[in-house]
Design a protein around this nucleic acid. Sequence first.
DNA 1: ATGGTAGCGCTGCTA
Length: 263
Amino acid sequence: MRVVTWNINSLKVRLPRLEAWMQANSPDIVLLQETKVADMAFPAMAFSALGYESAHHGDGRWNGVAIISRLGVDDVRTGFSDQSSDSANERRIISATCGGVRCYSVYVPNGRTVGSPFFIAKLEWLAELRRELDAKCSPDDEILIAGDFNVALEDRDVWDISKFEGATHVTNEERGALRQVMDFGLSDVVREQHPNETGPFSWWDYRAGSFHKGEGMRIDLVLASKPLARRVSSALVDREARKKGQIAEAPSDHAPVIVDFED
DNA sequence: ATGGTAGCGCTGCTA
């Protein structure tokens, strides 16, 4: 079973690239973030033509998450279950059961600046994610939570930690909030497959030639419950997909993160 | 070099 998570930064713009990528890489489950389309405009037919079912949660302006699977898309849930939470109606989370695995595609708020209301909302969103898991899942089941977490868990998950003084994504508060999610019983499977290296990065700023300077961050994660994490056979970032295409087709600022599981 | 890019959508916001 091959799973990919990819912040696609506009599905409308990136659909040809995604289709080509799917045909070349044969993923079983595709988890997207930042589709930036409304549910009505989600190109479900393009994916069904490739043999995939899909589900989407977006309003067309910002955010937007999707699950595309050829192992089934069952029991879809969108948003958070607790409708009283401030985060309940943002288009940042969708889940479905695909081939027996409960899969989540998540797009954690950016936070903008440390201490801002948006930063507080980011911490609260992660806390709500943990509560969602406590309410709906068991760590003994096969659970996969992947997406753009907008948090670098360790200093080696950024190109130069000295450049991040006072910045978001690396604060103890954000790391702690994400660790609280992981403490549900989830492993960071890319890190487990790459225990002794910087990165591998999954995002590079569009500005200032960051990609070609290697100035990236590892913020797109695949978290798996222990029963699922045991089956991981490989995990990697497809850096090629971050490059400009042959027909001057622009890339997302994120690269796809691919995880293979033994059957 | 004290900025730079990209997407949405038409003005400035978000990242």
